[in-house]
Design a protein around this nucleic acid. Sequence first.
DNA 1: TCTGGGGTCCTAGGACCC
DNA 2: TCTGGGGTCCTAGGACCC
Length: 413
Amino acid sequence: MSPWIALVDANNFYVSCERVFNPQLRGKPVVVLSNNDGNIVARSNEVKALGIPMGTPIFQVRSQIRDHNIQVYSSNYTLYGDLSQRVMQTLEQFSPELEVYSIDEAFLGVPGDGEAVAQQLRSTVQQWTGIPVSVGVATTKTLAKVANHIAKKSTGVCVLTDPSPALAALPVGEIWGIGHRLSDRLHRQGILTALQLRDVDLPWIQQLMGIVGVRLVQELRGIPCLPLELCPMPRKSCCVSRSFGRPVTAIAELKEAVATYGARAAAKVRRDGLTAGVVTVFITTNRFKPDEPQYANSAVVQLPQPANDTLTLVQAALRAVERLYRPGYQYKKAGVLLTELGPASVVQGDLFSDPAQQNRRGALMRVVDSLNQQFGAGTVFCAAEGLQKDWQMRARLRSPGYTTRWGDLLVVE
DNA sequence: TCTGGGGTCCTAGGACCC
DNA sequence: TCTGGGGTCCTAGGACCC
């Protein structure tokens, strides 16, 4: 195992993605919104400096948007996913020990001179992809997170050779793995800094936080407990859910939405070479409107045998909607969750299944997937998904698909 | 008017079995 | 009054992450 772990984390990733293809945004305050144009999920440094917190609902800061001429974008996950891949491919050049941790973060095992590698990682990613990253280097993942934290606030690179001063300056709630609940619990015990947490008694922390706490303390001490996950474990669930652009009351519309989400989820598990054994559908009204009647429920459909074809999964999801739907409510959100995922290669038929029909379904899905891949998502779809989709989420301010749609290619004049 | 989406892991308690 | 022990599996809820 390499002596160092580097955490490479993109700066303001979604904003940086927008800036790659729209250089006029550089130096200007920019935010990217969540799905349905609801909350701020990415902020440029200029916006952070204004004190607008992460996750703020956009409608609460309308006046600041106007006064400071903040540039606002809807999420463009296709673009961000594509640029993420480019960043990860760049990182692969540096080490075979790469763990892609999220869309904008990766851990790397790096040998030799941590400082030199960190500098090189940073400049190469910038040059090859246009995305600015910060690099934190230390001996465990948790300490690499701390190092990255410092890198972000300083030169973009930090090698943590002596962690103690950094830990003394770090509030316990900012440690990776300590959320606000655990932070409160630790505060009540008089533990305020990362350094204090590092130096607690192990049995005591086991009592307070369980095995998670023990691992965390060990990591702070420089003893690795969280290994690099070099080959990603196959996922265990797949969820597609969205808020609606407006309240939905009719079951017909709810069914369209759930069929749409179910089809998306089916395509995702097929892409990953998986099948699902169970389909769960959930629907809910708007929890932010306590004056309106509230209803939230979910229904589970166990499939007779694991499947990944759109027709089977959508039919199951629609049966669930019929069980769930109650008239008289304003629905705000619905979702489809696929679980009991397993490899598609080992699916075996049950007594009553018709192998010939399954082969035809499989062939059909391969054609559908390749058409949608080639000509764009939505080229071929289930009639149940609807045509108008008036209920669809808002994304009024979406940037073009610069890297994934021929029609959106950047034109240089 | 307007408040996101997609995941993972751990634990406690109950059901069930021998 | 007195009421096994140990193991596994499942589930719901809690907590966290980006």
